[in-house]
Computed example of a mutant assay.
Amino acid sequence: MKKNNNRKPIFKFIKQESMILAKKNRILAVLMAVAVVTGLSSCLKNNNNPAPEAFTYAFFANLATPTYKISVFQNNADLLGGEGMEFGTVRAGRLKPGPAKFDFKRLGSDTLLSSYNTTLDTLRYFSTFIYGSQTSGVETYHFREDFSNNSTSKAHVRFFNMVEGSEPVDFYIGETKLSSSRMYEDFLSGSYNSFTQIDPNEVSITVKNAAGTELAKISNVSLAVAGGVYTVVYAGTQGDTGNRKPAIKTFSH
């Protein structure tokens, strides 16, 4: 079947492993206010004018370690326009609210890797983390974000361990341990979706085992946006020494 080169991805492609986006909790509040004000203004001017189109915001991060790219489909529509996601990359954008079925496939194949059903609420933020390996299979962890308790003067950070088969690890910001004894897939309980508040700054992030041995470290990471929201992920293939070796990936929402 000939590939359709005219397909356009629905999402903006964000290739960086670390992003600095504006404060999403503020943005969503502003968007909601704009939608309400615009709708009211429209009604006052002309009752026949349509209301602004509703939307939800969706974020996808690929931490799965297979060498192939992963395609994302919503209700059988290819959200990425045939491009696929590489390890360590993200896609984010607006989607139409309502019931949705998301399928994750190997790029160029109909083989289903993972799938889930959900309902996308208007003006809410949904995150999906793709993880797993070629050996054990690809999985997804998805949830609706809650930024309601976030501070406008602090940065907000959370931690996920997505290295299959890893020992329990501790996450450090600078010299301060912020999350301890984190097991692979312990995030599935949902109890680690919330954030820890820190002073906005440029920092180093380190992952250590229980004995204090450094497993991975990155320096000069900007967590400097007041009100910013960040996810730090320990991801990769245990024992790999190449481009899939366990490393720290940071994402801004």
Results as ranks from 00 to 15, higher is better:
M1K: 15
K2F: 15
K2C: 12
K3M: 15
N5C: 12
R7A: 08
K8C: 08
A22Y: 12
A22C: 10
I27N: 10
V30R: 14
V30N: 15
A33Q: 11
V34H: 04
A35K: 10
G39K: 07
L40K: 03
L40I: 06
S41N: 08
C43Q: 15
N47M: 12
A51Y: 13
P52M: 00
F55W: 03
F55E: 05
T56D: 10
V72Y: 00
F73E: 08
Q74E: 13
N76P: 02
G84K: 07
G84S: 00
G84Y: 02
G88Y: 01
T89H: 12
A92T: 02
R94H: 03
L95N: 02
F102Q: 01
F102T: 02
S109R: 12
L112Y: 01
L112A: 01
S114R: 00
T119S: 11
Y131R: 04
G132I: 04
Q134A: 15
Y141L: 05
Y141D: 05
F143N: 02
F143V: 09
R144I: 11
D146E: 08
D146A: 00
D146V: 04
N149T: 05
N150T: 12
N150S: 08
A155G: 01
R158S: 11
R158D: 07
M162I: 09
V163S: 06
G174Y: 03
G174A: 04
L178Q: 03
S179L: 11
M183G: 15
Y184S: 06
Y184C: 03
D186W: 14
S191L: 13
N193Q: 04
S194F: 09
T196Q: 14
T196D: 14
I198N: 09
P200D: 13
V203W: 10
I205S: 00
T206P: 11
T206W: 00
V207E: 10
K208W: 07
N209V: 08
A211M: 15
T213A: 02
E214F: 06
L215T: 03
S219V: 14
N220F: 02
V221Y: 05
S222M: 06
A226R: 13
G227I: 10
G228W: 05
Y230Q: 06
V232I: 15
A235S: 03
G236H: 01
Q238C: 00
G239C: 07
T241R: 01
I248P: 08
T250E: 09
H253R: 03
H253D: 12
H253N: 04
